Amino acid sequence: MSDSELAGRTALVSGAASGIGAAIARRFRAAGARVCGLDLAPAQGVDVARVADLRSDGDVESALARLGEVDILVHAAALSLHGGTIDTAPADWADIYDVNVVGAVRLMRGVVPGMRARGGGSILLLSSINAQFAAPTLAAYAASKSAVESLTRTAALEFAPYAIRVNAIAPASVDTPLLRESFDRTGDPEAARAANILRHPLGRLGMPEDVAELALFLASDRASWITGAIHPLDGGAHVTRR
């Protein structure tokens, strides 16, 4: 691996202002990419920061205007809400799908024509371990991530003739502000954190940098024969969901 393996390429990273998206943006820049960070607030430490609400066609189109060629797309932005199937309001279900799933489609509509014209590209979507397991307290989020995985497979097949690869990463618990907020809601954050760690056989939470390293590999030429795959990144949690 070279620290300049993404040199000369432009990467668009949604959700780049914090958490996993920010870690991916940093890692891609360190590997030589020109990084455009897209979020509801300006991302720090990127080459180009654009503000957009992924629920808005106009916002996304404006953010991508004059950006130039995009070689790599990472959709790390996500919306989540604590709640069960009927406890979550229909409007909230729609909001979560609009960001997590349709937001990915809006971004692909903006960058895939250019990738196709240039003869290739790489697209990476962020899923979740919750896509494959029952998640009574995250019903809408989990369902949206299942949709992201289906979208990954379908887009990979559609875009393969143009040498555009589409993959997804499915992390378990990653130590981000969003996860820490969920611990805070329990009333005993330290106990909640300890219990969550026990669900991962490797004995720790994931870090955003763990996701960024896998994202770099999948975006790079080292993964040139990988497409349509969902890659677990979960400290072994998928082996035994505890």
Rank of each mutant, 00 (worst) to 15 (best):
T10Y: 10
S14W: 11
S18L: 09
A22S: 09
G37E: 07
G37Q: 06
P42V: 11
A43F: 09
Q44I: 11
D47N: 09
S62H: 14
A65I: 12
L67K: 04
D71F: 00
S80G: 15
H82K: 13
T85F: 15
P90Q: 08
D92C: 10
W93S: 05
A94M: 10
V101H: 03
G103E: 09
M108T: 09
R109V: 07
V112W: 00
A117I: 10
G121L: 02
G121F: 01
I123V: 12
S128P: 08
N130P: 04
N130A: 15
Q132E: 12
F133N: 11
F133K: 12
A142G: 06
S144M: 10
A147Q: 07
V148P: 00
S150R: 09
F159Q: 01
A163K: 15
A168V: 07
R180Y: 02
E181G: 13
S182I: 07
D184A: 15
R185A: 13
D188V: 10
D188C: 10
A195P: 03
I197A: 05
R199I: 10
R199Q: 15
G203E: 14
G206A: 08
E209W: 03
V211P: 00
E213R: 10
S220D: 08
D221G: 15
R222T: 05
A223R: 12
W225D: 05
L233I: 13
T240K: 14
R241Q: 09
